[in-house]
């Protein structure tokens, strides 16, 4: 080690001399090697049993976003209109999500919707067919319908109101 330190402390002037060239080259190479740090340098050698296993996780330390807690400052019945406006604004997103949930419960389910539309496919499809075809198909359908026996279609007329 002591020898190395001595070598590093050689001055530029001495190293430039002709008989010192070999030492100078060697020193340059050593320096380059020291600078080259391979990738392993940046990784900790963690033993396998300490590495995280299982499902990936998110850690949330606060209850506020976790439970969807409301904003702490609130006002009721116009006691402090400024705060009331602010609180409703901040809690609006939550209320929206809540009402959306309620709406979904009340409205039609996807399956029901699909069923209804399935019966509509034929009726709407007719619109886009040419007249001749339409008639042909209708007559076909009529034959089928006669077998099933359906109520005859009534032509709607204007009904006079009774006095």
């Amino acid at each position: 080690m002591a020898f190395r330190k001595e070598k590093q402390s050689l001055s530029k002037g001495v190293l430039q001399m002709k008989f010192m060239q070999r030492t100078a080259v060697q020193q340059l190479v050593d320096e380059n090697e020291a600078q080259l740090i391979d990738e392993e340098h940046w990784y900790l050698a963690v033993p396998k049993e300490f590495k995280m296993k299982g499902k990936p996780q998110i850690i949330e330390e606060s209850f506020q976003p976790l439970l969807g807690l409301r904003f702490g400052r609130q006002s009721f019945k116009g006691f402090n209109p400024e705060i009331e406006r602010l609180a409703t604004n901040i809690n609006k997103d939550q209320d929206l999500a809540e009402s959306e949930k309620k709406e979904q419960e009340a409205s039609v389910s996807d399956e029901e919707m699909a069923e209804r539309y399935a019966s509509l496919v034929g009726t709407i499809g007719k619109k886009f067919q040419k007249k001749k075809r339409q008639k042909k198909q209708e007559s076909k359908e009529d034959e089928e319908e006669e077998e099933v026996e359906r109520e005859p279609k009534k032509k709607r007329k204007f009904l006079k109101p009774k006095d």
Binding site: F63, Q64, L69, G72, R73, Q74, S75, F76, K77, G78, F79, N80, I83
Partner: peptide
């Protein structure tokens, strides 16, 4: 709680975690 109280009484509240 807060809503029910607010339906009948005007008041202001600040709740810290």
């Amino acid at each position: 709680l807060l809503k029910t109280l607010g339906n009948s009484l005007p008041y202001e509240i600040a709740i810290g975690m």
